[in-house]
Structures are given as structure tokens and as C-alpha cells.
Nucleic acid binder design. Sequence first.
DNA 1: CATGAATGAGTATTCATTCAT
DNA 2: AATGAATGAATACTCATTCAT
Lengths: 204, 204, 204, 204
Amino acid sequence: MGLASYRRTISETKRASILAAARENFLSGGYSRAAMADIARDADVSTATLYKHFASKDALFAAIVEDATTTAEIPLSTDIEGKAARDILLAIGDAYANQQFDGRMNELLRVVIAEVPTAPNLAREVYKNGVLGRYDQLIAVLNALVARGDLKPHNTGEGALHLAGMVKEFVVWPALFTPRFEKPADLAAKIEACVDAYLKIYSA
Amino acid sequence: MGLASYRRTISETKRASILAAARENFLSGGYSRAAMADIARDADVSTATLYKHFASKDALFAAIVEDATTTAEIPLSTDIEGKAARDILLAIGDAYANQQFDGRMNELLRVVIAEVPTAPNLAREVYKNGVLGRYDQLIAVLNALVARGDLKPHNTGEGALHLAGMVKEFVVWPALFTPRFEKPADLAAKIEACVDAYLKIYSA
Amino acid sequence: MGLASYRRTISETKRASILAAARENFLSGGYSRAAMADIARDADVSTATLYKHFASKDALFAAIVEDATTTAEIPLSTDIEGKAARDILLAIGDAYANQQFDGRMNELLRVVIAEVPTAPNLAREVYKNGVLGRYDQLIAVLNALVARGDLKPHNTGEGALHLAGMVKEFVVWPALFTPRFEKPADLAAKIEACVDAYLKIYSA
Amino acid sequence: MGLASYRRTISETKRASILAAARENFLSGGYSRAAMADIARDADVSTATLYKHFASKDALFAAIVEDATTTAEIPLSTDIEGKAARDILLAIGDAYANQQFDGRMNELLRVVIAEVPTAPNLAREVYKNGVLGRYDQLIAVLNALVARGDLKPHNTGEGALHLAGMVKEFVVWPALFTPRFEKPADLAAKIEACVDAYLKIYSA
DNA sequence: CATGAATGAGTATTCATTCAT
DNA sequence: AATGAATGAATACTCATTCAT
């Protein structure tokens, strides 16, 4: 058993280093410019080993994306107990911004969008889990705030999109168009303005 | 003059057919998958002729993008005379939606975003002219409405981004993630909801 | 007749400017790197006109070479009347050096040598007329000097090659290996040394 | 170690066959006409393997040239002990002639000269190592002969160039201008004449 | 007669993937 | 199980030459 587990550990270490190298390569230059040979070199494995772990470049890319969308997901707590509506929404906005920038989700989105023609299923998956999924969580929070009487009853499904749309305008849109875009200094203020705008409409 | 004008006509015809073929190829499969040989074939010219007109693949791509961002621009009229604020904003939203879908601007944005790592200058240009430029026009309209007393005085710069962000959520965001995404049937209603949300905040 | 001669003049002017442009292009970068389009541009004519004058790139190259080998040839005077043997030989050496450098013959030789595999006949022609031809003239001079009693009777055919070989070592050999090689300052002294060496052997 | 050495052997075999094929292609038709695909075919490898071994056509050409100039160099022995001056110089001349013809150095020189405009550094290298280097060796021999009293004291640096120039006239000059030029039957006699001419000047 | 736009065949180079050891 | 050498298909770009006007 010792040998088997040793081998498994080695194997998992290699897999992890491959994923890291691949992520770096895919995110920095896009799908096409990432070369399997480079990824193998960066991961300190041979190309054959790379292919032992991932059957193809597409599969490796899918693994990167899936890895990012599943591990990076910090589920929003719908626990609103004892917190003001504004603070709750601000916290959500901040968490979102952090993930998009620190987790390099914006760069990932760019690469996924780039590959929509070639990997439509992957894009759909990302959109469903990474985008729409977040909305479900936000809607749940909004509903809870309505239920508690902080917000007027309203179409929270639509509202969530409106709020998210406003925030994205500052958080992801510019990042899509700029290489190595860093989190702007005044981002928190921008998000506050979005939340306040939302509250102006629906605050009870 | 007969010869010169004849040649110019021929040349412009070929140039146009090259641009059309290139546009189709770039938009449907992205930059990398578009092959110069295929574009030449689709445009019914030789590759050499293609290169006579456009010095490189990059240059051709830039021409496509510039062509799209300059010709497609329908300047928003800031003439608000005799029209209700809501109608004006709805008209702007509709115009925007039409351009994004009918002009295939969404597909273009996708390809431009895809090439941000390789063609950052082009992306910056598109962002400045195609995105920020539109905001300037919207801000001008909002200012006019404020001046007329339809809207409360407010930070129209920020407001324009909020309004645009909400609309984009329905108009461009899903289109980025879905190949050949068509204009949804209920889009007008979605835009109305965005405009109404905005008016709820700032209507005088 | 006026029109015809006018046309002929124009045509000859164009031909000359084509030859000049071609010469420049061929000599500076070699046969392959010289592009017919560039030559036409430099000569201020269209490519079609270029082809009206010279049927092919090969033909143009041959014309350049022939032009250079025939027009540049300054026939050596075999008139030795009243001049010392040493001075005569030095004058020949100087004339040779001038032609090789000022007439850009060294560059021409390089290009011709380069094209030996593709244009062997041309190379043979150049070798016969441009190289061996000069030897005949030199031999004639040597024979005259022998006849006058300045030199001991000897195999002047072989002697001419020996003398020419020594001189070439300084005049053409380094020029073949160096782009834009200029005439060295001490060339005259080097040539003197060669002539003196020759005279040491055969002086009467 | 078995695997590693096996691979090394295979790799070196392939490298050698690539070099041979490249040499043949470059020497017979010159740089431009040698196609990487043809070289790969002649070497029985794929183009990709070719590029694994040599990063570019230029690099491959440089390798050929370097290979030829380094491996072909048969250093002249300066050991003159017990041999007559004439025999020593004749032996040097013969060795030189053999190398130029049997080692196909003349063809190589032709190709290098052809590429002077495009690869000046390579040409300079060849000139320095392949041409001037040989002169240094010859000068050393001449100096030894002077020291032994066989030759009169003289400027052996200049003398070496004179002797070499005369010999080249028969050994390399015609070879440059003729494709597949073979060693002439009477070459030994020609070289003897050159050596004798030299001895006539400087023999003690 | 002069033009310049158009051509098609050719070339160097890259890269995802496989396979013998 | 791991290696890295080998592959072949694909691609951007060039250039001598021709032809309709």
C-alpha cells in the first residue's frame, strides 16, 4: 500500500503542477498561443506525461476552466441575520470583485469567451455555473431581504440582473479589454454607488 | 480617366469582397481559425491579391474591426425636443440593441476580447471608440434631460454607466457566451425594465 | 520620323534607368533578394514595361553582367614605348584595382559566383571575357617587355597568372568576403610589392 | 543509461544525416534553392525533426559551414626536420589542393561568398578561420625555413600571401566559376611552378 | 504603347499528438 | 510509468510573370 499511495501522491503532485502551468499559459496568452510543449516544460514533466493526465489540449483547457469555476466559487451566505441590507449587498459586491480580480476570473472569462466558437459547451457551462449560478445566490439574498421587510416586494430575478449589470460595468467590463488589468483603487466607491442606486429603487 | 476609374472600381469591389469574406471568417471562428487562404477563396481572389490589399493578417483584422466600429456607429441624436424622457431612453436602448445584434457587434466584441493579449492596442481603440464613445453620447442626452427638468440633477456620468450596465446584461452578456446568439423576443421588455428602473431613481 | 526617334529616345532612357536600378539591386543583395517589383519601382517604370525590355529576371541579370563586363573593360595599352617595365606593370595593376573597386566589379563577381549553379553559362562567359581576356592582354604586354629585353625570356602565360594571382590576393579576395568592401589605403604599396616580386624573378 | 545512450546514438545519427543532406543541397544549388523540405526528405526525417536539430535554415547553413571549416582543417606541420624546403612547400600546396577539391571547400566558398550580403558574419568567420588561419600556418613554416637558412630573410607575411595568391589562381579561382569543377590533371605541375617561382625570389 | 492589378506556385516554420525504449 | 524524439498537416507570406484596359 505504501508504494501505491506514494505513486498516487507523486501523480497528484504532477497533475497539480500541470494544471498550474496550463492555467498560467492559457490565461496569459489565450488558448491558441498556449503550447502543450511549453506547458509541459513549465510543469517539469514530459509531454507524454502531460498526455497521460489530460487526453488533449481541449481536455486540459476544460479542466483548467472547471477547476477555476468550481474551486474559486465562494458560496454567498444567505444568512442576513443582524446585518443591514446595505452592508450585506456591499459585502456581496466586494466578494465578487475580489474573486474576479484576485482569482483571475476576468482573464479566465476572456479566454472562455474567445473559445466560444470552438468550445461552445464549455462556455455554456461556465455561463450556467459561473454566471447564472451566482445570480441564484443573489436572488436568494434579495428575497430574504424582501421577506425581512428591508426591501419592497419586487421582481428580484430582474433586480439581481440589474444590480449585477451595474457592478460588472466597473468590475469585469474594462478588465475584458485590457491585458493584466488590475483592480482600480476606487472600485469600492463605485460598487457602493451601484448598491445605493439599487436601494433607491427598492428600499422599503 | 476611364482606365483609372475602371481600375479603382474593380479594386474597391475586390476590397469590399475581401472585407466581407474576412469579416465572416473572423467572426464565425475567431482570429486563429480564420485562414488567409480561406478568406481569399471566399472573396474570390488569390492570396497574393489579398496581401496587395492588406499587408498582413493583423492588418486585415484591424481593418475589419475599424470598419465595423466606424461604419456601424449610428450617432445618437441629442435632439430631445418634444419627446418624453422615457421614449428617448427607450429609443436609445433599442438602437443600441439593434446595432449589437443586427450589426453583429457582439460577435465582433467577442473576437476583439479574444485578441486582447495579442492586439491590446486594437482592443483599447475599440473600447475607447465603441464603448466609451457611446457613453459620452448617452451622458449628453441625460444632461439635456436634466436641463429640461425631466430628470433630477445627478451624476450623469455614473448614471450612464449604471443604465448601460443594466442593459448590457441582457443585450451583450449572453451573446458573448453563445455562438450565433440571436436577439431574444422579449428584449424590448427587458430594456423597458432597465429604463424604468433608472427613471425610478432619477425622474424628477 | 520625329515621333519615332522621340519614342526611341524615351525607350532607351527607360532601358538605361532599368539597367541602373537592376544593377543596384542585384549588386547590393544578390540575385535572389533582388525583386523585379523593386527594380521597376526604382527605375520609375511599371513591371510590364520592365518585362517589355527584358524577358525575364534571368535575362535582366545577364544584361547587367554583360553590360558591366563589356562597358567597363578598359583595354590595356600594349604600347610600352618609352616607359620603364616596372612603371608599365604598376600602371596595369593600378588600372585593374580601380576597375575592380570603382566599377564595383568585385561585387559583380560575387553575384556571378553566387549564381554559378543556376547560370553556369553566364559565369563561364564572365570568366572567359572578364578574367581570361585580361590575361591575354597582360601576356601581350609581358611578351613585348621580353622582346624589348626588359624581362628574361620565360613562360609569360604562366607568369601572367602568377602576377595576377598575387595582386588578386589583395584586390579581389578580401572584397569577395566583405560587404561594401572599400579600396584599402595601402593598396598601391601592396601592388608594388607584387610587381617587384615578379621583377625579381624575371627582370633581365 | 541504456535508454539515454540509445537515444543519443539515434539522435546523432539523424543529425549527421541531416548535415550530409543539407551539405549536398546547399553546395549544389546555393542557399536560396535549397529547400528545407528537400533537405528533410533527403535526410529521411520530417521537417519537424529537422527543426528540432537546427532552429532555422540560417542556423543549419551556419552549422554546415562551421562543420566544414573546423573538421576539414588539417593543420600544417611546422616540423621541417630533415626535409628540403621545396618538398615542404610542395607538400603544403598539395595538401591545400586536396582539401579544396576533395573536401569540396571550393563549392563551400562559393556558397559562402554568395551569402555575404545576407550572412556577413559567417563570411567573416570563414575568412578569418579558413583563409587567414591557413596563412598563419604557412608563415610559421616560412619563418622556420628562414631560420634554418634555406630562405633568405624576408617579409614572410607578404610572401605567404604572394605564394598563396599564385596557387589559388589555379586551385580555387577556376573552381569558383565552374559548377562541379574537378581537380585538373596537371595541377601538381602548376603548383610546382608557383613554388619554384617563390624559391627563385627568396631561396638563400 | 504603358499600366498596375492579379495570379498560383512555392517556402520557412509551428504544434498537437504518438511511440519505441 | 515516464521519457523525449519524431511526425505530418497546416499556415502566413512572397514573387516572377501575365493580361485586360
